[in-house]
Design a binder for these strands. Sequence first.
DNA 1: CTGAAAGCGCTTACAG
DNA 2: CTGAAAGCGCTTACAG
Lengths: 349, 349
Amino acid sequence: MNKKTNIAEIARIAGVSTATVSYVINDLDKVSEKTKQRIRKIMADLDYIPSLNARSLSNGQTKLIGVTLPLIAPSDTTGSLLETNPFFAEYLGEIHKVISAYEYDLLLSGIQSKGKYKNWIKSRGLDGIILLGYYPTDIYEEVKALNIPTVLTDVYESYAHDFHSINTDDIEGSYLATKHMIELGHKKIGFVGGNIQESPIHNNRYLGYGKAMLEANLTINNDYVFETLTTFEGGVTLANRLMAGKVDLTALIVDADIVALGVMKTCQDAGKKIPEELSIVGFDDIQAASFTSPGLTTIRQFISKKGEIAANLIMKDILANTRTTESKTVKSQLIIRGSTCPISQSKKK
Amino acid sequence: MNKKTNIAEIARIAGVSTATVSYVINDLDKVSEKTKQRIRKIMADLDYIPSLNARSLSNGQTKLIGVTLPLIAPSDTTGSLLETNPFFAEYLGEIHKVISAYEYDLLLSGIQSKGKYKNWIKSRGLDGIILLGYYPTDIYEEVKALNIPTVLTDVYESYAHDFHSINTDDIEGSYLATKHMIELGHKKIGFVGGNIQESPIHNNRYLGYGKAMLEANLTINNDYVFETLTTFEGGVTLANRLMAGKVDLTALIVDADIVALGVMKTCQDAGKKIPEELSIVGFDDIQAASFTSPGLTTIRQFISKKGEIAANLIMKDILANTRTTESKTVKSQLIIRGSTCPISQSKKK
DNA sequence: CTGAAAGCGCTTACAG
DNA sequence: CTGAAAGCGCTTACAG
């Protein structure tokens, strides 16, 4: 019925060349305003929309940004990850908001096996990519070879400097959390983190804890440092271990909200009062942190800020056709809710 | 340095025509296995990846699925929506999981103003689109005219039958929730919903409530039916109203978890015991529903199931080049956690 | 089993 | 200010 109208059709009707129509589409100054108007009218009447695909093929720009989310285990999928970590939705949403203003679109992917990732980018001809999280080193080699605008988020390894790099001030955040507990009078303060040895991000959060403890002349008791999976269940498991083991902590610095929430619920379900019997501070400020009673005191990561910066860095390089590398650190902030209280209050129990 | 290798380059090196290379890329039976092997080797050696863009232009398939999320108010953005409704991340993730198995990619969008949406789809040449939620009628007219595989989720209007359509069994879900309360001995059961008049989805949930009440010979007191915004704050506001107004409800059917969580936290913060003083059941089973203490009893929507079905319906039509219209209803399920208890227990207060 | 060539719908020097 | 024509990197009848 409606055979796709193309640029040739418009040109024919307008009695001009396809070049002229193209100039109008791109609003170049090469065409008189009068002609432009006339051609625009024809395009509108025929409901003509230029094919981005064809434009891409000839000018080499797809106006597509790839956004990649991490998968921990091979069996994981972007799906399950999006489902379990509320963090990502917020990040994604903000990126979309920024790039769509430039008429760019967002193409979603998980990380595929080694070679496949690079091939995906090449085959789609992505104009830029944004990676969230930490991947095997090979991935970065591949990506670097591609030489397209790239931003990394939450990567601390040295090669992060080969790309745009955005991080949260993890040390500072954790320091603030710990200092908060100290100011409340706590001395027996535990730390719960992900893989502290292997993951720089968790290690940094541990360092912030240590910094605050040292500053207050509190010794770091190794029995007060715990590693968990960064999941709700990780928190549940830890809480049960803690309650079984009679650890005499009064405060807990947990380096991810999702874990902190698992700890809190498990304690509460077991009849342990939060914060009276145990003060808890989390990290991230995910949405659910404000849903619980008491609300979770936490370190807010400005996730949408990170998304916004990521998107803007990408767009800047794309628009200027440059390959710069900037490192940005996003400040974190202590959000005090109900899960922490002064030690004096806890003693009343 | 590395000028992009293309099909011509491969053909030249292999001493064959570009057609033959193309046949190999598409693994057609037109080429001898021996030649295939040889050409594949050359492609691998040169790290050659065919441009999907170019392929799209000539065969008319982009292997791109557009996924569109709703915006309530004009000022809203996909960003803010993704941030506030955990529902979407799960849905998105599942769609991605399915389509990526077919080497399709997911292009994210919000809904733009009227004409722009159609233009977006045309300009990108999307092979199919999935719309989540309800939009102005014009949108559906536009989409229908496009005549591409389309699936709608959570749309009850009659024109939904012009497309693939997926719904949750809202009436049944709400019925189950209400029946659960009745079986626990509650009689003064309130209903909290979104815009019941205007939104079929909320209306259906209201109907399910009514059905269960009627069946149990309980009269529906209009003072027991409340409308709220479908947000956490909506729940907070309602809870404050309820507590100020001395409404003597013992149970509340809330037609969205996010609202139910707002109600629950507000009550708890005010010292009201959940479920002893008020039993609450939600709807959706968002992730945070299991994070609170007590956990929120709710009606689970199999959101990932919906995403999976949506993706499969789209892929089926795309692969077979058909334009079918199926309507699927996804069952919901009562998930009992701690926010509901027998009326006898509540009387003990 | 393989190839020559037109075509997909644009853009872009180049020429006038 | 406008046009003729090559080119982007593929696919696909058609012919052999």
